[in-house]
Nucleic acid binder design. Structure first.
Length: 477
RNA sequence: CGGGGUGUUGCGCAGUUGGUAGCGCGCUUGGUUUGGGACCAAGAGGCCGCAGGUUCGAAUCCUGUCACUCCGACCA
């Protein structure tokens, strides 16, 4: 009984992981392609996952004092160019508007690839006194980056995200914001999405264009490749100086404020797919699943079955529950909702009604349990928690199995060749040249300098000089 | 951006030496079914990715172009 038998449309993941991934995106009705490269339609099921992510994060941001705003879609060329590192980083992948209403524009406009410049322009206008600080802003929008290679969710030319932009009087306060928001992301990934992440700082060569420091959370996918799941940047007062954002401090002196920005995107959905999915399809963490439990009537035309199912649905109104009373066979429905990753399936037929119970099946492990209808709410709550914990444990086990500590370049290459892709923990001297050499010779690039450091060795894995940091390395999406 | 592969009905595909398009699934209608993708019957659905060209005639040959996909390079 191979799994393939159940869902013939999905390529098995060990046969071709990339194809498995796109199969899931299409078959689970998350997205559809359009006639413009790299631009996808987020279909209702995929959109609903994103909305659930938004709801949870937005509430958390607001608890922490952030306010939402909307910045424009366009940035004038001169504004984009004000901070030189920033423009250097983004110019190559920017889409330009050259015409409007059939006439050539005097100054071309870029479609925002990120909105630091827009926030800076605005902050310069509204911040005058230390009393105006801090400003804790966020926006939920889409941005455009003209990528050459595109993949649904992981790298699209237009993608949806949130970008938080904050501005503070004190450097320490801005740094605390940067680290605090990274923590918000990490907890969200682990607790709600059941994706274990590594928190760390990016190396100099890998940090955000214009940032003083970039922090990121890195997750390991089922195939052993790393996915950057969220970032948080500390800008110091660099942007403030470039954009002339100044205020008068308590001592009646002109001062430059300190800034941060942080974001997560629809890429998180790609992370969910590649962390939890299996050969039967998608597996969704309950916190963001559009349907947390699906009720499937058995022999639904027999007297009383549909009525009992509707009653059950009513009883479970605290959860996102769907009753599928379509004419498809029960077996078809089982496969359909497995493919769509619904965490819990509830079967209810004449036999169950007679016994006063129903059958609950958890998607991630296929476990079946007969549950009394009297206690159904608690049972579902318990099951959903089980799914979250089970998913997290499975993902963590995969990451641990695929994390290797290495002391030499040869050991890295051998280890990856023998065990497959994964995270490599290795020491580094801090020199960019060594970072590049490791990538050239072993194929893994630096992912981050983890907050929790370990001493694998005393010397750099590349040059043999004194080691400064332990780095996580990996092949990245 | 370089190299390989693919575009034919909603999906998966076939289509020979150029002669005007077919199969399976799905869809619609009616009936029987329903504890792991049910069955019977009758239907509907296609400018063959797009634009040129060759030809009496092009899904098929030629040129260009767009999209998807894989491998690199680039990149949050």
């Amino acid at each position: 009984m191979s799994e393939k038998k159940f869902v013939e449309e999905i390529t098995p993941m060990d046969e071709d992981f990339a194809r498995w991934y796109t199969d899931i995106c299409k078959k689970a009705e998350l997205i559809e392609y359009t006639s413009v490269k790299g631009c996808m339609v987020l279909r209702p099921y995929g959109c609903s996952i994103w909305e659930n992510i938004q709801k949870l994060l937005d509430a958390r941001f607001k608890e922490l004092g952030h306010e939402n705003v909307y910045m424009p879609l366009f940035i004038s060329e001169s504004l984009l160019q004000k901070e030189k590192d920033h423009v250097k980083g983004f110019a190559p992948e920017v889409a330009w508007i050259t015409h409007g209403g059939g006439e050539k524009l005097e100054e071309k406009l870029c479609v925002r690839p990120t909105s630091e410049t827009l926030f800076c322009e605005h902050y310069a206008n509204i911040i005058h006194s230390y009393r105006d600080l801090p400003k804790l802003y966020n926006q939920w929008v889409s941005v455009v980056r003209w990528e050459k290679t595109t993949r649904p969710f992981l790298r699209t030319r237009e993608f949806w995200w949130q970008e938080g932009h904050t501005i503070h009087a004190a450097a320490e306060e801005a740094m605390a914001e940067t680290e605090g928001m990274l923590d918000v992301y990490a907890k969200f990934c682990e607790n709600q999405l059941a994706i274990p992440v590594i928190k760390g700082r990016k190396t100099e060569s890998d940090k955000f264009a214009g940032a003083e420091a970039t922090y990121a959370i890195e997750a390991l996918m089922h195939d052993g490749k790393a996915l950057q799941a969220g970032t948080s940047h500390y800008f110091g007062d660099g942007f403030a100086k470039a954009f002339e954002i100044t205020y008068t401090n308590k001592d009646n002196q002109k001062a430059y404020p300190f800034q941060t920005s942080w974001g997560v995107s629809t890429r998180l959905i790609g992370g969910i797919i590649m962390t939890h999915g299996d050969n039967r399809g998608l597996v969704l963490p309950p916190a963001v699943a559009p349907i947390q439990a699906v009720i499937i009537p058995i022999a639904q035309h027999k007297a009383g079955v549909l009525e009992k199912c509707a009653e059950l649905k009513e009883k479970l109104s605290a959860f996102r529950v769907k009753l599928d009373d379509s004419e498809n066979s029960a077996g078809w429905k089982f496969s359909e909702y497995e493919m769509k990753g619904v965490p819990v399936r509830i079967e209810l037929g004449p036999r169950d009604i007679e016994a006063g119970g129903c059958v609950m099946v958890t998607r991630h492990d296929g476990n079946k349990e007969t549950v009394s209808l009297d206690d159904i709410e608690n049972a579902l709550e318990r099951k959903l928690n089980e799914v979250r914990d089970g998913l997290y444990a499975k993902a963590l086990a995969n990451r641990e199995k695929r994390t290797y500590a290495c002391r030499s370049m040869d050991e890295i290459s051998d280890c990856l060749a023998k065990n497959g892709d994964g995270f490599v923990k290795a020491m580094w001297c801090g020199d960019e040249e060594c970072e590049n050499k490791v990538k050239e010779q072993t194929g893994v690039s630096s992912r981050c300098i983890p907050k929790e450091q370990e001493r694998i060795d005393d010397v750099c894995v590349c040059c043999g000089k004194k080691a400064e940091y332990m780095l996580y390395w990996g092949k990245a999406y």
